[in-house]
Design a protein around this nucleic acid. Structure first.
Lengths: 144, 144
DNA sequence: GTGTTTGGTCAGACTATCTGACGAGGTCGG
DNA sequence: CCGACCTCGTCAGATAGTCTGACCAAACAC
């Protein structure tokens, strides 16, 4: 039954599936103390470190909420804060050692799930999907 | 910069954009008392009415949480509950008059946003996107 | 230099979610 | 037809995540 599901929901379903998988397998690998909200924020941290307000803006939450989540990630050893050499007010949130290991574990799960999708869709259509989504990003991603 | 963004995030961006738009425009149209969580559940209610536990399962939340949200939607006049003729334990959550109007308003916004996407991507690629996502649904939607 | 913007924190409130326990209504094997 | 078990929904209590508003200090714009 190929009914008329709205495109938003159609996008949401695989997104949720991916998130759930990464989550479950990360938990099984010992990263079982991180919550979905923390993870959604954590994944936005750039390799050089990110400012709290940038993270908040990208994730679409307030800086207070972001601060709350980063506090916890810091306590759990996933990130640490360093002064920003370029701006005395700011502090850079950087990925700590444990965070780095979790990033690698997550990347492996993502690769595995993407491989499953590719084997269901075929190489060609998987590549098409990524191209189209990347293109769509131009009008749907307010931050870059 | 067409970097290697993971497919999950690539799916999330347009999903979020769609949700945000529907939300803003619904609020502007007088449906400003509904929250995102309520809306995500509400959109799963089938035209004939749905059982609470089915809604919960489909939305991936507990039936307690679903009950909490449906209570509010009922108080706001979006839904009502009727006894399920097929099962004395169950009650059917049905869309009420105000809910019906909001469904129509939401449908109009979705159509508008999809039209924008189509005009950015072109008819052909928009159709491809929907086909591929529908296909992907087979392995990513646990509930049919 | 003074006024405005920006980065971050503190405090308080509220929303959404979970786990556990439960009662009443179905279902099924004997 | 009866007991064991399952399912639908609710109640109660705990916790997580989010917001608004107020604030300070550093940086930026003239």
């Amino acid at each position: 039954m190929a009914e008329e599901l709205n495109t938003g929901l159609l996008l949401f379903l695989p997104y949720r599936a991916m998130e759930t998988r990464v989550f479950e397998e990360l938990a099984a690998a010992g990263f079982d103390d991180i919550t979905p909200s923390q993870a959604r924020l954590f994944q936005r941290i750039s390799p050089e470190g990110s400012r709290l307000s940038d993270l908040a803006r990208q994730a679409g939450i307030t800086k207070q909420s972001a601060g709350f989540l980063i506090d916890q990630l810091e306590r759990l050893g996933y990130v640490h804060r360093a002064p920003d050499p370029a701006d005395g007010r700011a502090r850079l949130v950087q990925i700590a050692e444990r965070g780095q290991r979790s990033v690698e574990a997550a990347r492996a799960v993502v690769a595995r799930v993407e491989a499953e999708w590719t084997s269901h869709l075929g190489e060609r259509r998987m590549a098409q999907l990524r191209r189209i989504l990347t293109d769509l990003r131009e009008i749907t991603d307010p931050w870059r």
